[in-house]
Design a protein around this nucleic acid. Structure first.
Lengths: 249, 249
DNA sequence: CGCGCTCTTGACGAACATCAAGCTCCGTGG
DNA sequence: CCACGGAGCTTGATGTTCGTCAAGAGCGCG
């Protein structure tokens, strides 16, 4: 249990920022969320936060670090379906879907805040507007899923990779978590390949291709965008699907 | 405006059935939904129900026919991100996302029931449990998006095609809208190719492959599943992601 | 020092796209 | 009645993208 509410509020800052990019968040709503928080947990890179097939009784929000949702196939292959940044709920959907149809893993060391489902039910009974905002967050996940789907179906591997770089940068930048055209993103090429849906051998060549074309440099944990316009153009990136517009929801 | 509430209730039967596959639906909740219905519309096959970039003020539910969500690319290519059956909301997410980040098209002639967003807001204020059920519906869409993503990234075209057949059959069958191992699905190979993320030439060869392997026959508008176990096995289909379990949400 | 993880490179093959052409079916108009 | 045209389906030939296999390099860590 978390007893220091000031600490919780601090860890929830990226989350509040994410919501405020889309709508206003009342002080009472903000307090209600902080009070619904339960535990603070830590997960090491490479470990699983939630397992496919399990039935979580609380939802997890990333306060620090990078997480992903993925499905492991019988062949041993893996496909990421989402990458989560600080401020993202990784399994808010388990609140209503009940059973996990995929796993959640830590891409880096993570600090997590949990929210018991029974408290989320109470929020839906007392705070209709806040409920719509939480609903909205899961809809944003769905919008990103669709964008990835379009990429997987109709874009080449270099385009999808460039698109992912644009997306992560746009999301981090909107939260104030990225420098200008530069962000820390310490994931392995294997994880990146699992996100883009290609082999590790090929992601390596794709990254070289993007570098040779003067678009990005991906060096260890740091990504540098050398030419945003060219990168976004090549990726056909349009951030509309991120719905970063403050308006009543 | 719809004045005949009995007619509305009739058109909403697949929708109520879809919900009841996941939770109980109270008589008051059912009535509240029927009363929130607005217009009954018809769309011809090939026309668009909702355009990318628009800001709908009401959400649409498919009462009869088949619809799809898709993104059109500058190259002229198209990628479907969802296929909607009777009982499905095609753009419930526009209620909170406000701006459409993709289009919705009619795959066949469609009968549509609309729900003004302002009435949906009122539902969220008066019916918390019903709100969670509507939220759940959008989460189911998200779960299907993820399943398609995994297929696009890690399965072959024949596997994805087989998987789609399994999914559509499972969804139709659960609603009582399919015969045993057989369902009516009158979409063109071009539309199917756009769903699976391949060319029309290749989808044609894939369908021949599935037929030669004794898995399915796709003849015009009718799909016959010749060997469910082999088909589901080849597609690695597991209907867990459809969350067809009646339990409190 | 040696092990394992990550990244890198080359050679080869499979899956799929593209281009081009011809087919069937069906509705429309003469 | 048939000619015409368009939409959808089918087939063959060829090229590109990406996967697989294999090997090795760099590097941190015990």
């Amino acid at each position: 249990m978390i007893h220091d509410t000031a600490l919780v509020a601090d860890l929830l800052l990226p989350f509040f920022a994410k919501i405020r990019l889309r709508d206003e968040l009342g002080a009472d709503e903000q307090r209600a969320i902080a009070e619904a928080a339960d535990q603070q947990l830590h997960f090491a890179a490479g470990t699983d936060l939630v397992d496919e097939g399990s039935r979580p009784v609380r939802s997890m929000l990333v306060a620090r670090g990078l997480a992903c949702r993925y499905r492991a196939l019988p062949s041993g292959e893996r496909q990421l379906t989402a990458i989560h940044l600080p401020g993202d709920f990784v399994d808010l959907h388990s609140f209503l879907l009940k059973e996990m149809d995929h796993s959640v893993g830590a891409l880096t060391d993570c600090t997590i805040i949990t929210f018991p489902h029974e408290r989320l039910v109470k929020l839906t009974e007392r705070f209709p507007h806040l409920t719509r905002l939480l609903w909205l967050l899961t809809l944003l996940d769905g919008a990103i899923h669709r964008e990835w789907l379009v990429g997987m179906g109709r874009l080449t591997a270099p385009q999808r990779t460039a698109h992912l770089v644009c997306e992560i940068y746009a999301r981090l930048h909107a939260l104030g978590l990225a420098a200008e055209n530069r962000f820390h993103f310490p994931i392995t090429q294997a994880a990146l390949a699992d996100a883009v849906g290609i082999s590790t051998v090929h992601i390596n060549r794709v990254l070289q291709d993007l570098r040779h074309r003067g678009l990005i440099v991906w060096d260890g944990g740091m990504v540098d965008i050398l030419n945003w316009n060219a990168l976004a153009g090549a990726a056909q990136f349009d951030q509309r699907y991120l719905h970063i517009v403050q308006e009543p929801r």
